[in-house]
Design a protein around this nucleic acid. Structure first.
Length: 141
RNA sequence: AUAGCGGGUGGGACUGCCGCGUGCCGAGGCGCCGAAAGGUAUCGGUAUGAGGAAAGUCCGGGCAUCACAGGGCAGGAUAACGGAUAACGUCCGCCGGAGGAGACUCCCGGGAAAGUGCAACAGAAAUAGCCUACCUAAGACGAAUACAGAAACCGUAUUCGGACGGUACAGAUGGAAAGGCGAGGUAAAAGCUCACCGGCACGGCAGGUAACUGCGUGCAAAUGUAAACCCUAUCCGAUGCAACACCGUAUGCAGAGCAUUGUUUGCCCGACAUUCUGCAGGUGGCUAUAAGGCUUCAUGGUAACAUGAGUCACAGAUAGAUGGCAGUCACGCGAAAGCGUACAGAACCCGGCUUACAAACCCGCUAAAAGC
RNA sequence: GCGGAAGUACUCAAGAGGCCGAAGAGGCGCCCCUGCUAAGGGUGUAGGUCGGGUUAACCGGCGCGAGAGUUCAAAUCUCUCCUUCCGCG
């Protein structure tokens, strides 16, 4: 599967402000419903809804090499999760990296990402009820 | 052998599975664009895919747009000399100076006799000859004595005095006191004179393309600072791929607002659109360029480098492609298990500089002291 | 990617070659005021660190982001790095 990137800055801002948030040691995940999902579905030859992914690595976590590697690792982890489980489609997913992401191995990052996505209720098999649950747990946190 | 100096190489290797960018080839039913041809998303195959610093953005050039008759001012940069180069503040050679026992290293290395400024504290004095000290030879002044005369003044002679005279640095300083040191010289002194050393000048000679060096002759004038202003010589139009060209001006996003109109259930609230303000997107440029790399190539040159031949030329993304996992080997640390393998990521392209850098390896050169 | 500023005590900062042994303010300490505190008033020291010295007075060295250089002398001038901030879009 291909990843569709977020590049507009305002979408990042919106996700930080309004999205459902879940944080682990290596990364934070912000999820919100994609308003333009229909357009993207139209552009997609498979005719499916797609998630748009934005990975944010600030200068705080290291130089260009560290940031690039961390982004690659996160992309790989997301790809594997997407293959193993069925994710809900038509969402904006922003993944903000934290310092440990530069050192961790891929499996550890994947575990973190899996945990965060679960908290945000992104897995299809857990149905709509878990979305509310995800939100409430987030509020509790 | 040891210690050291200089230069260079190098930037872990391989296998399997999954995944990404780009070029080319093929497919492209369904989807999208198109009247169609076709194109495209996509799929398959194949090739290929970060650096020596890609970094800092400190210089120089290409390229692009704008400006431009020519010249000057202002502003900026550079600074011994000769060469290399597209060009440079780079490189090579060489001169001078400084350091080292030596190999060798370092130097923003023009002008302070064009002018202005600054030089704290200390010190007698800071660019100028005040004060203390030294001297009393000549001249002047004062005093005393002697001579002549009755006596005084005047005059002459001798002695003494001090500076209004001479000398120019002895005076605890200071980064710097207007050559050093020794001898002569003198009333006391002083390049005043001489020897040696040092400095400066020369349209003198020799060597060198030149900076300069050696010799010769002459001179005694000249504190430091130009990374203070400044002067001299040389160079520089400005802005940068976010340049620039083309296609779109549809629509999207953000904010304001509920005045108008419409939709949402007849009304109210609310929401959305209409309204106002602000901001944009895509394609090309974009990489086969050559001033490029390689050859223990040839020729010329001390060298930088130039010329010629052969050969290789294979990133081109657009929020940014090289990754993940597993295994084997290599190297380092460790008794082992194991851990680690630097600095670091192209963004229009080249030539340099500067800075960062793990392990390993190669070449040339030096030899004072100590040890064998 | 391109361009431009600034780094001085715990904090805000002045100083722009020598009088710097580095102003000033906040903060800090002590005293007064109050039953106690806050506010207010008065007053004071060290100002960082290393070494010497009697746990003292005091003395000396190095300290103005770091390292070189120019100068007799550098917080100040020059160069190279580091960090922080800002502008262009």
């Amino acid at each position: 599967m291909k990843l569709f990137p977020i590049k507009e800055n305002y979408l990042f801002q919106k996700a930080y402000k309004n999205g459902t948030r879940a944080t682990s040691r290596a990364l934070s995940v912000y999820v919100m419903r994609d308003r333009n999902a229909v357009l993207i579905k139209k552009a997609n030859p498979q005719g499916d809804y797609l998630n748009r992914i934005g990975i944010s690595a600030s200068k705080k976590i290291g130089g260009a090499v560290q940031r690039n590697r961390a982004k690659r690792v996160v992309r790989e982890a997301y790809r594997q999760i997407g293959k193993e489980r069925t994710l809900k489609k038509g969402y904006l997913v922003v993944i903000a990296l934290r310092v440990p992401a530069t050192v961790l191995k891929m499996q550890e990052v994947k575990r973190d990402l899996h945990y965060c996505l679960k908290r945000c209720g992104m897995y299809l098999e857990e149905t709509a009820a878990s979305e509310n649950k995800g939100v409430t747990t987030d509020n509790e946190a």
